[in-house]
Amino acid sequence: MVTPDAESSGDDAEDDGGYVHRPSGEPPKQAETSDEFGWEGWALVGMILVGFLVIPVAILVLPAAQGVVRSLGLTLRAAYLALPLVPAFLLGAVAVWSALRSRRS
């Protein structure tokens, strides 16, 4: 769309479609950011610690705790497969929850 006040140079390679930039003189507004970590951030840190410290230690002591594993109705192999899934699901849930909560704020 060409406006009547736009000058045409006749050069199609340089044609900008009649757009004329008229700045308003105001600087662009910066989005508000927060430097606070918040308790959502600490929840994520806690889940990472569970995933990298608690679960590996639990996997190491799992053979010694076979009685507890059997009382839960699991075999040792099933416990080895299920134990790493716990922090994976929890970390995913906390990350999605935290992202949705930060978008709302």
Rank of each mutant, 00 (worst) to 15 (best):
A99P: 02
G25E: 03
R70D: 12
T33D: 10
P84S: 09
P84H: 00
F37K: 04
W42I: 04
P27K: 11
G17L: 00
V2K: 11
G38P: 01
L62K: 03
S102D: 07
L74S: 01
A13F: 11
L76Q: 13
W42C: 00
T33Y: 12
T75F: 01
A95Y: 07
L53M: 12
H21T: 12
V20S: 01
F89Q: 06
D15P: 03
R101W: 00
D12G: 09
R22N: 10
I48A: 14
L74A: 03
D5E: 15
Q30G: 13
R104P: 07
L74D: 02
V45I: 04
F52C: 14
L81Q: 13
D15E: 03
V54F: 11
P23F: 03
A78E: 12
G25Y: 02
F52Q: 13
K29S: 14
A65V: 09
A43Y: 06
V86P: 01
V57A: 14
L49W: 10
P56A: 07
S34G: 11
Y80W: 06
S102W: 09
A65S: 15
L85F: 05
P27D: 06
D12W: 11
A31F: 03
F37D: 04
G38D: 10
L72W: 04
G38L: 03
G51W: 01
H21A: 13
A58N: 12
A13M: 06
V86F: 15
V69G: 02
T75L: 04
G67K: 01
I59T: 15
V96P: 07
S105W: 14
L90P: 07
E7S: 09
T3A: 12
